[in-house]
Design a protein around this nucleic acid. Structure first.
Lengths: 187, 187
DNA sequence: TATAATAAGCAACAAAGGTTGCGCAACGAT
DNA sequence: ATCGTTGCGCAACCTTTGTTGCTTATTATA
């Protein structure tokens, strides 16, 4: 009996994501989103309790998109698995600056940004690649991740403007350098 | 003949800086600043053209404060000069999270965050420390700076919560690792 | 001490953004 | 084809924030 909804939750979320992409989180206002959709603000508040819920949906969609970046680089086989996770992270930062900032450059308490794969997959991989003990491998990973995050965040804020080829070379420097350093520390 | 000003430009700037420290850039509103000073908004607009000018003053004051962090760590002699610049950057990020974000985690075009010392002081220093050519030393510095910025930004956003002692150890890992890597590349 | 010049306080105005009430229109069941 | 339900557009309301006009208070000087 009631009229159909003009939009689905997903359509609205998608438009909100696009808006965030282009104008950042501050650009995501009820009125701007309505204009993006070509409607009034009512359909939005019909499907979402409030704008905060829309922002949450955007966050979630951005995370999904990030996972797709990771998955793509992991599947491409262009780089070793471990490196691919870093390259995916950085490629996401490069191509989706606003979303990267939203996901990985906001205040969080105690959860360092990580690639999709959980620690219990990553750490054994590093142990295998480098021959380090678990404890050493964890520190190695953290230090590598600091470097990767450094590159990504500097690209996302336009401090750097690098091709992925350059990124790859620099990541190799960091990886090889740290690996040698950690091996030397084992005596 | 006219009444005295109730505040100086510096007093207002200082209050604005404190406000930004505590509440971030969004916390710096005309009314909040007035309350901080214990007056109406008028004195602010008497000494500043508008809030944008206040924000500029805060930015400038934050930069001065950052320079003092750098200078202190450089002068302390606890670390070698080059390392001290990185430690100062990170210490600033640790103790002044909001100001660090304001200065070094905003969109800028093409100017990577740097310590106070100019390139023409830093690069020769690295060449001396490492024996690298100028070109290599510049890349070395950039990669080190990426790492330093990674640590600093992760601390500023509370992804990490490290003592400076830990920071020091991790910086050494990165430095020694990269130095070895760059030397090896020279054959 | 009176005065000119103007800083400060108060309150108002405008703009932006979130949210909602009102009335109309759409749509499936009858 | 009609009806009941309810989504939608419009416009309004409220809050926050930047900014400014009006009036009063202040202060160096005549």
């Amino acid at each position: 009996m009631p009229p159909k909804f003009k939009f689905t939750r997903d359509e609205i979320t998608s438009a909100a994501l696009d808006l965030t992409r282009r104008a950042g989180p501050d650009g995501l206002t009820a009125r701007a989103l309505a204009e993006e959709l070509g409607c009034s603000v009512k359909p939005i508040f019909g499907l979402f309790k409030n704008m905060e819920e829309v922002q949450d949906a955007v966050l979630s969609a951005a995370q999904d998109l990030y996972q797709s970046y990771l998955a793509e680089d992991m599947a491409a086989g262009k780089y070793p698995t471990y490196k691919a996770s870093g390259m995916g992270y950085i490629r996401f930062a490069r191509e989706e600056k606003e979303l990267f900032k939203l996901l990985f450059m906001c205040d969080r308490k105690g959860e360092p940004p990580k690639p999709g794969k959980e620690m219990d997959v990553i750490i054994p991989l590093i142990m295998k690649n480098t021959g380090l003990t678990r404890e050493k491998a964890e520190l190695f990973h953290l230090e590598m991740w600091i470097f990767v995050h450094g590159v990504a965040s500097m690209i996302a804020t336009s401090y750097l403007d690098w091709e992925m080829e350059t990124v790859s070379e620099v990541l190799t420097d960091a990886y090889m350098g740290l690996r040698t350093r950690f091996r030397a520390a084992e005596e």
